[in-house]
């Protein structure tokens, strides 16, 4: 038996999901972070974040069309993590690393938290 593995398929699907997001096609939730709004697909959010998984698997919350995050969450940090969810690319800037990491802890994105820890360790000579 043979199987053909399309090695680019996962990234091609993600690229298309990101295009759908940028055109606001079938996005089904608005995430409110302080005063900023981010449109996204619930399925992508819950596939990447433990917090969103818990929210959208709750039968009382899964139909919500808007979710407000803790006001302590930095919108810039959230924007970077949302971009990561849809692109696999995490933009780590030293000036934003703490807010990215704290937002990743809040969103329960454990592997991103680990990556932030490693980034902090390697950029801090002490």
């Amino acid at each position: 038996d043979s199987c053909i593995q399309f090695t680019r398929h996962a990234s091609d699907v993600l690229l298309n999901l990101n295009r759908l997001r940028s055109r606001d096609i079938l996005t089904d939730v608005t995430i409110l972070v302080n005063r900023q709004q981010f449109r996204a697909h619930k399925t992508v959010l819950m596939a990447c974040s433990g917090l969103f998984y818990t929210i959208f698997t709750d039968s009382h919350k899964c139909n919500l069309s808007a979710i407000s995050l803790d006001p302590k969450v930095d919108p810039e940090g959230f924007a970077i993590l949302l971009e990561f969810m849809y692109t696999s690319r995490l933009t780590l800037k030293e000036s934003l690393i703490m807010s990215i990491m704290n937002t990743a802890i809040y969103l329960q994105m454990d592997h991103v938290v680990d990556t932030c820890h490693r980034f902090i360790k390697t950029s801090d000579p002490s």
């Binding site: 199987c3 399309f6 680019r8 298309n16 295009r19 759908l20 055109r23």
Partner: peptide, 21 residues
Amino acid sequence: YEGVNTIKEMGRSIHEIPRQD
């Protein structure tokens, strides 16, 4: 897929949704 002969296809797998119409 153990024991299955897997052939790698490196090209694009699906159509590309345009950035904007």
